[in-house]
Design a protein around this nucleic acid. Sequence first.
DNA 1: CAGTACCT
DNA 2: TCCG
Length: 224
Amino acid sequence: MTRHKQDGLTMNLFDSLDAGELWQEALCPGAAVLHGYAGDGRLLLPAVHDVTTLAPFRQMVTPSGFRMSVAMSNCGSFGWLSDKSGYRYGSTDPLSGRAWPRMPDSFARLASAAAAQAGFDGFEPDACLINRYEPGARLSLHQDKDERDFSQPIVSVSLGIPAVFLFGGLSRTDPAIRVLLTHGDVVVWGGPARLRYHGVMPVKEHNHPIMGRCRINLTFRKVM
DNA sequence: CAGTACCT
DNA sequence: TCCG
């Protein structure tokens, strides 16, 4: 996998693997893990609270009728939604009928800086999906393909208790590498990795000093 | 777009 | 299993 920048914070997904998985090395161009890039999250957590007070976490339903284990909210111009009629982005929160809360400046700055760090300059997200995982919550392998412009990367910020991130290939049945993500880690994928399947293993019981038994993930996207 | 068989 |  391509190493986009050479510094102490940036490593590629391959660096998280053990020797038994070295064969994957050539399969991860366009993806990077920035361990600790978001620091202790102290600029982000009050903003998460503010957003989710206006747009509370809710468990969405998939088109096939399953209730997702992850609770979600959104901020920015567009919010990702799932219900029985499908997946899509919308500019209003169905729960309130009002626009999603505006994206906090701290969110946008972090996402743009992380993208640039990974080699994607000029990333200006217009959507931030906020995912809340409690122990047992998971997200099965999927592709992010509800956005218009796949030239724009995805930036994912992890806060709270650890989770194993799955990063697969362009086909659902391709093998997935596993990356442990902890509080402050940021993953960026784009370019040739933009449509790679990814997901999160069921989150294990754990306690984080400030987040308790909770993991929050911020996923930044350019929708329009 | 609903939801079976599958076996992660 | 179109983000169980």
